[in-house]
Design a protein around this nucleic acid. Sequence first.
DNA 1: CAAAGTTACTGAACACTGTTCAGTATTCCA
DNA 2: TGGAATACTGAACAGTGTTCAGTAACTTTG
Lengths: 203, 203
Amino acid sequence: MGISDRKEREKGEMKKLITDAAMRMFLEDGYAKTSIRNIAESIEYSPGTIYLYYKDKDELLYEVQRQAFLKLVSAFKEHATSADPLVRLSQMGKTYVSFGLENPELYDLMFIIRAPMNVDCEVHDDNGLECFGYLLRTLEECMASDLLIFKDPNQAALQVWSMMHGLVSLNIRCRLKIMLLDESSMQLVLNNAIDEYITSIIK
Amino acid sequence: MGISDRKEREKGEMKKLITDAAMRMFLEDGYAKTSIRNIAESIEYSPGTIYLYYKDKDELLYEVQRQAFLKLVSAFKEHATSADPLVRLSQMGKTYVSFGLENPELYDLMFIIRAPMNVDCEVHDDNGLECFGYLLRTLEECMASDLLIFKDPNQAALQVWSMMHGLVSLNIRCRLKIMLLDESSMQLVLNNAIDEYITSIIK
DNA sequence: CAAAGTTACTGAACACTGTTCAGTATTCCA
DNA sequence: TGGAATACTGAACAGTGTTCAGTAACTTTG
């Protein structure tokens, strides 16, 4: 049956058409300001059509999230490659923070917003699991050589991630304006914070 | 003129009536799920009336934010009172995280959400300045006795705050579900993280 | 005390939002 | 070629923040 194969393929292409448009518009204007009608208009379909491929706006978000986490993993694979796990940890921190500052809308939908329509706090597949695993393995490698102050790799991951997420999210939400830094020195201050933090957790 | 005095007073009372209702409903259902119509209904006025006292929904948010920061300051003043600045720092960390976990919707509107209607990243008065000052003074006191590893109090505040905010906000947004902890052990893990972190920044 | 002026409030209306679904047009298979 | 399956539409529903002409109550003035 070549026809049902083609149908399958076309369905996939349509889903991709939608998520690509969604990704583009989420990146540009953010999740909240992008409406289903806008997405439909940009791909020249009616609003109803999108619901034939995605259950609701949240499901569209999860799909874009999935791709966003792939992007983050790629960034890690590109910039956090040192054989030395301590150096790699530092590279990961800087990669993570840069990723957040360079893609604020993407970071937003990955880690900050809550999808407003449905019930919160569901686990969404393996979104981010690979990223977390990447961090966990690096920390385990560090701790195998007794290089860090932590007792438990999960505790370590929690703390490192919290620090990096704190830096990025407070910055994205402009809560650091309270410190009266100009934008140019911000990147410097953040990098300094990462370095200082990594130093402080080394035994 | 006693009449204009009364008018002034009545205007204040009306504003308080509105913000009290808003605070109650934001706390219960969150900012996004609370509509102007709901607030109006709960105080038995028409939706338009609210706009005679507050420019828009954001201004209502800022007012509630102001009160929320007062609450946080009170919590500090109640639970972070040790004369020893190091102990006080630890108390502040635990108070901050508890505050976040016990009032997630309040924490949300203070530090996480972005008001969706208007332009972002404006500085909103002195919201949170007192809280930040409280932290800064404690850190300065610690550093005056050369107790911490930091070089600059502002850098110190940035890092401490980022860590605490990271812990709370990742938890509130359920991103720590990836670590597969049950809810009861979460508070323990977080407290442990705070202790470990404070220890790691002591010289 | 009554008329005029001021103020407080209303609720319909506007332009949006996510979502649904009866109806239509197209494609597929017998 | 006719009937079934599929793909898509766009109007409609219930909700949102916000505005504003119109009304009702209160205050000041003649």
